[in-house]
Design a protein around this nucleic acid. Structure first.
Lengths: 208, 208
DNA sequence: CCCTAAAAAGACACCAGTGTCGTTTTGGTA
DNA sequence: TACCAAAACGACACTGGTGTCTTTTTAGGG
């Protein structure tokens, strides 16, 4: 009736496994990592690992969810700065806290792409992917819509369409960067150009 | 010393297998198709199949190469119409013969993405992917450069960077479309918007 | 019409990865 | 200190896919 170890300990172990697994996924990609790889990286036995995650998909989804909630925290934080212009918010959403293009990309991004592309024929995975896509669109959509309502942005273009364009661009960049070395893709320059584009589409004259 | 069947027959058989395989790859994706699937679709035995292709990777690359040379033919054809403005050429390159956005995508595109993403840690595959990326960049680069030289396009932006942006956009669209249903991605509208973007970047006032 | 070399067939051995299950260890509790 | 439920372990059986190898078939040349 009494648990043999504390809830804390379980949480911790689970977190440790996920951390180790994340590293493996980053290094090997989703398809090529095996539970054995994870076992070794996390210093846990087969049985031990399966106690926490029933398979690779389950494990990866846990990592995805974790990333999502972390992101949500950051975003929530950003959104509270209602004082700042929507443009600043938009830039922070796209490029992180410093709000301008750089060459950093989510190291797990390639594996995420793998996960959703190779799983596109699986009902569960597909639905999940669509849900995430929609969430992404919504976040950008809301910021753009807000800007358009205050008159900070032009409403010449549909906010949903612009939101989708941002996602497309980000996905395309992640994809190319997953395969090509950075200097061939020119991440930063491309991002800057895309920002130019957004400025045009939203009629933002903006400084810097 | 004399071959048992004609060269033609061999070519034909090989072509048949590739055609059947293409269909399987479209339906199942790269990672999930097995040689067995192909055997069944092509009505050929295990031994027979391996006579023509030494493994799945070999088979898929053959299909890729074939697609590339077909494309090259089309492109070559387009480029000969030197009379037409570079803008028209650019649109044809992006959207095919009719030169304007539609909802058609290469049905093999998702498998191609899979192939290169999951193979990104394999030396051979990576190199091959880079080569193809470069070819893609070059095609667009040349058209844009030509247009800039004749003064048809503004040379405000680097042609290589614009070429890369086009690839990024196309890749992003292919990726999203591989995972999302068409109506969520809004392929056509996004493409039209992107064309606006290009017009801005190249200073093309153009009719349509 | 037979002969033969190449093409097609499919049985086979092998491997890598999976998830389960019986056993052992562990640490809080009484 | 002894107990015991849960946690951790790792051997195991199973599966699905691969590439090879031997055998059978086939079609063109003599």
């Amino acid at each position: 009736m009494s648990p043999r170890v504390s809830k804390e300990h379980l949480k911790q172990r689970r977190a440790d496994i996920m951390k180790a697994a994340t590293q493996v996924f980053i290094e090997q990609g989703y398809e090529h990592t095996t539970m054995k790889h994870v076992m070794e990286a996390a210093n846990v036995s087969r049985g031990g690992l399966y106690q926490y995650f029933s398979n690779k998909e389950d494990l990866f989804e846990a990592i995805l969810e974790e990333g999502l909630s972390e992101e949500a925290e950051d975003t929530g934080f950003s959104l509270e700065e209602a004082a700042s212009p929507q443009w600043t918010l938009l830039m922070k959403l796209m490029f992180g806290e410093d709000g301008r293009p750089d060459t950093n990309m989510d190291p797990l991004a390639p594996s995420k792409l793998e996960f959703f592309i190779t799983g596109r024929h699986d009902e569960r995975r597909r639905t999940y992917g669509e849900k995430r896509y929609e969430m992404g669109v919504n976040i950008y959509d809301e910021v753009i819509k807000a800007g358009q309502e205050t008159g900070e942005f032009s409403d010449r273009y549909d906010s949903g369409l612009l939101a989708r364009s941002i996602i497309t661009f980000v996905d395309g960049l992640a994809l190319d960067h997953a395969i090509q070395p950075e200097e061939k893709v020119r991440l930063k320059e491309q991002s800057e150009l895309f920002v130019e584009y957004l400025k045009m589409a939203l009629d933002v004259s903006s400084s810097s």
